[in-house]
Design a protein around this nucleic acid. Structure first.
Lengths: 166, 166
DNA sequence: TCGAAATAGTTATACTATAACATAACAGAA
DNA sequence: TTCTGTTATGTTATAGTATAACTATTTCGA
């Protein structure tokens, strides 16, 4: 497992967004998926935020672009993105985040800072493998997994109080 | 990581409940926690179900016992149980489940069957260790983690259709 | 016994998500 | 091209989940 996101550090965010979009477009074309305007715009919104975003926040942004502002619009687009690995759902936050990985079909783990709410994505394929092995001992076959950790990012470790006191 | 639950198999459920309660009582006494009637009853309800339960389902049961039927009552009791390791929150299901582990202070992973909704808890300390190591490479300190897998239990593997078709 | 702290009761509301059905766009076959 | 099945979107309504904020009570140590 190695770092694959610069969420906790400064970086070229513009390139970040452009890369994410064009990668998604490539994958969608290759898989024959319909990367429609709402879906594309939804991914772009997530990429711009570069962090976790609630469905209703996404919805607000979509409204500004003239899309229908009803919840199902956002949820469908988000579900599509998650389904195909362009985004992840972070259940602990009831939120979504654009996938920051180059590769397709990976497993991800999320590091959620309780100090500043930043979210970082780690490649979790080894973790996933370990999980599947454990599951096998009970005869369970894993299809999808969510791995989410709550804690403190480097910055907040020096400025925030320890757990339970803040 | 080894199997520590019999959720996917028949077992002595009565003993299961009694054990869970008395173990919790021991720990609470040792830690100086107040294992009040609502909290105790809430844990008992979760143990009886021996699976995931929504907060509002718990609330319904509490009402039958004469406790106040307002959401905060259930959420507080559940939060207490989760906080001290007597129960776990399963975010994928917006639900809670009694901890089926003997030991305290462990990490757990959940196997959620999409066929029959059964939930099994695996000891996930190795997984947790791997997660923490990965987090360290980004300078992140893990305090809590949720690891949840969706898939098929042994029984449903033979009777259910594959993902996406069911 | 007094007072601080923790727990529980209560009311109201905020936030998250989906069901269900109507309409429109698209893709391949006839 | 036109038909037709399929996929996507629009729309309305509502279900489900969770917490804020305030009051009352209990507990426990000083």
């Amino acid at each position: 497992m190695t770092e694959t996101t610069a969420a906790f550090h400064p970086h070229d965010h513009g390139a970040c967004i452009a890369d994410g979009l064009s990668r998604a477009e490539d994958v969608a074309r290759r898989k024959g998926l319909r990367f429609t305007p709402v879906r594309r715009r939804t991914l772009e919104i997530l990429l711009q935020r570069h962090g976790a975003m609630g469905a209703y926040d996404v919805l607000d942004r979509l409204r500004e672009d003239g899309f229908s502002a009803q919840p199902p619009v956002a949820y469908r687009a988000l579900d599509f993105l998650v389904e195909h690995g362009f985004a992840h759902r972070i259940r602990r936050l009831n939120a979504f985040a654009a996938c920051t990985h180059p590769g397709e079909d990976h497993s991800a783990a999320f590091l959620i800072c309780r100090g500043c709410d930043a979210v970082a994505e780690l490649a979790a394929d080894p973790l996933r493998a370990a999980l599947e092995q454990g599951a096998r001992t009970v005869g369970f076959s894993v299809e999808r997994a969510n791995i989410e950790a709550l804690g403190l990012c480097p910055v907040c470790q020096s400025t925030q109080a320890p757990e339970g006191i803040a």
